[in-house]
């Protein structure tokens, strides 16, 4: 049963295969046929894996969970671009209609010192968890829902906070940065919580600790090239990094922390 507008693609895939963290990896070439343009990128990989299993080969390991662009688990570098060619799109939301019959697609894992490869396309992003653990939270007891107008947050401030909170922690910013910098990720959380009342009491400590952890995890420094912003599926903006810089310098110079 074919959808009227869909066509089928024959593709050559060059995929990074690596048996384990310490093993040497390399690109391996596979052919897949009859890929529907209605499929998502991950479904295309599912088809390949089915083929490999049928042949008794080891399937390609890749991370995924929600497959609807909200969990941040998926994410590979497709033809040199984190999450592939579309802006504001995760790998799971990328569709095969973006490709042409006969295309060769190179698929590599996120590469960064702080994201060691676990296997094939799967990397260990727990460095992000440790950054969040060091301050990306609010530990005040907020109790029951308060009377709506007791804490006034102007609409535009709330919008800024919401836009920053959209980060799904996928790591595309690190993967696409020539310096493997995590500043877009950290700036999203810092801006988010610095904008709202609940975030105030830990505001200085949060930014100092999160940046200290970011540095200790061996992420690089921002050189303002903007690749992270372009690769980010949640459209986190570079202005957040400027805000992170302000927050950090203010905490460093004026707070008692």
């Amino acid at each position: 049963m074919n959808h009227a507008s869909s066509t089928n693609l024959n593709l050559t895939l060059k995929i990074w295969r690596q048996a384990g963290p310490q093993q040497v990896g390399g690109l391996k070439t596979y052919e897949v046929e009859g890929i529907s343009t209605d499929m998502s990128f991950l479904e295309m990989l599912d088809v390949l894996n089915q083929q490999l299993i049928a042949k008794g080969e080891e399937p390609v390991a890749f991370d995924h969970d929600c497959r609807e662009g909200i969990c941040g688990t998926c994410g590979v570098v497709i033809n040199g671009q984190a999450h592939g060619p579309d802006r504001g799109t995760t790998t799971c939301q990328l569709h095969m209609r973006r490709f042409q019959n006969g295309d060769t697609i190179v698929i590599e894992p996120w590469l960064a010192k702080a994201f060691p490869i676990v296997r094939d396309l799967v990397v260990d992003r727990s460095a992000f968890d440790r950054i969040i653990q060091s301050g990306g939270y609010v530990s005040v007891n907020t109790g029951n829902a308060p009377e709506a107008n007791t804490t006034l947050v102007p609409h535009h401030v709330q919008q800024d906070a919401m836009r920053a909170a959209a980060c799904i922690g996928c790591g595309a910013c690190v993967a696409s940065c020539k310096n493997a910098s995590a500043m877009l990720f950290v700036s999203a959380k810092v801006s988010h919580l610095a904008s709202i009342p609940q975030g105030q009491s830990e505001r200085s400590r949060r930014v100092l600790n999160m940046v200290a952890t970011m540095d200790a995890e061996h992420f690089g420094n921002c050189t303002n090239t903007g690749e992270c912003e372009a690769a980010c599926p949640a459209k986190i903006e570079l202005t957040n990094i400027a805000k992170l810089n302000r927050e950090y310098m203010t905490a460093l110079m004026y707070s008692k922390e």
């Binding site: 060059k14 690109l27 570098v77 033809n79 040199g80 671009q81 984190a82 060619p85 802006r87 190179v106 590599e108 590469l111 696409s176 090239t225 903007g226 690749e227 912003e229 372009a230 690769a231």
Partner: peptide
């Protein structure tokens, strides 16, 4: 570094 690298900007 990546085998293939392409900007998204």
């Amino acid at each position: 570094t990546y085998t293939l690298r392409q900007t998204k900007v």
